[in-house]
Amino acid sequence: MDKQNLLGLLRLHIKRGINLAIRDYKTSDPYIIVTMGRHKLKTRVVKKNLNPEWNEELTLSMFTLDEPILLNVYDKDHITNDDPMGDAEIDIKPYVECLKLAAELERLPDGCALKKIQPSSNNCLSSESCCTWHEGKIVQDMVLKLRNVECGELVVQLEWVNIPGSKGLAAA
């Protein structure tokens, strides 16, 4: 890992899917591929479930804040190619704005909302998202509406992890 250019780590807590599309006979076997630049991470496959609970943490090394984070949902097939089940993009800029306030937040009560982000044509949010001060960290909970598919949403949480010796967000 090139710590000289590393800003920090972004932990994505992939919680669950809601009302995902049917791609097999009555159900699907969904998994998610998270892509940012040349980084690619994958969740496990949840068999026969349109409302899967992943509860997985995937961690991206952040060298830039300009690349979008893409989440592509697929249905695992054993004989044919995996079927696409929609995609979503995470815009981390509102979250990063909250992170830059962190030094001033130490005195805030747990659960205090710092910023609310509204759904728009510029993001994949299906409902209002909040950056929250939680146990000494800033997290952002979001429900993402999947694109390029008839239905489905993903519940995701972002959490920034500072790494000793990395540039940090001040350099971004």
Rank of each mutant, 00 (worst) to 15 (best):
D24S: 09
Y25D: 07
T27S: 04
D29M: 08
Y31G: 00
I32A: 03
V34A: 05
T35M: 11
R38E: 04
H39A: 14
L41F: 04
L41S: 07
K42F: 08
T43C: 04
T43G: 02
R44S: 07
V46T: 03
K47R: 11
K47L: 11
K48S: 06
N49C: 10
L50K: 09
L50Q: 05
N51H: 14
N51F: 13
P52L: 14
P52W: 15
P52Y: 15
E53M: 12
W54Y: 08
N55E: 08
E57L: 09
E57H: 09
L60R: 04
S61H: 03
S61C: 06
S61T: 02
D66S: 09
E67Y: 05
E67G: 01
P68A: 13
L71C: 02
N72V: 06
V73R: 11
D75P: 02
D75W: 14
K76P: 00
D77Y: 15
I79L: 08
I79S: 07
T80A: 04
N81C: 05
N81D: 04
D82I: 13
D82Q: 06
D83A: 12
P84A: 11
E89K: 14
I90W: 12
I90C: 10
I90S: 02
I92C: 02
K93C: 01
K93H: 10
K93E: 05
P94D: 09
E97V: 07
E97H: 14
L99A: 02
K100Y: 12
K100L: 10
L101K: 11
A103K: 10
E104K: 15
L105H: 06
E106L: 10
R107P: 00
L108D: 01
L108S: 01
G111I: 09
C112R: 15
A113G: 05
K115V: 01
K115N: 04
K115Y: 04
K115P: 00
K115R: 10
I117V: 06
I117F: 07
Q118Y: 13
Q118F: 14
P119Q: 07
P119C: 09
S120H: 14
S121V: 12
C124P: 01
L125M: 02
S126T: 09
S127C: 01
E135C: 12
G136W: 14
G136A: 03
I138N: 00
I138A: 00
V139E: 05
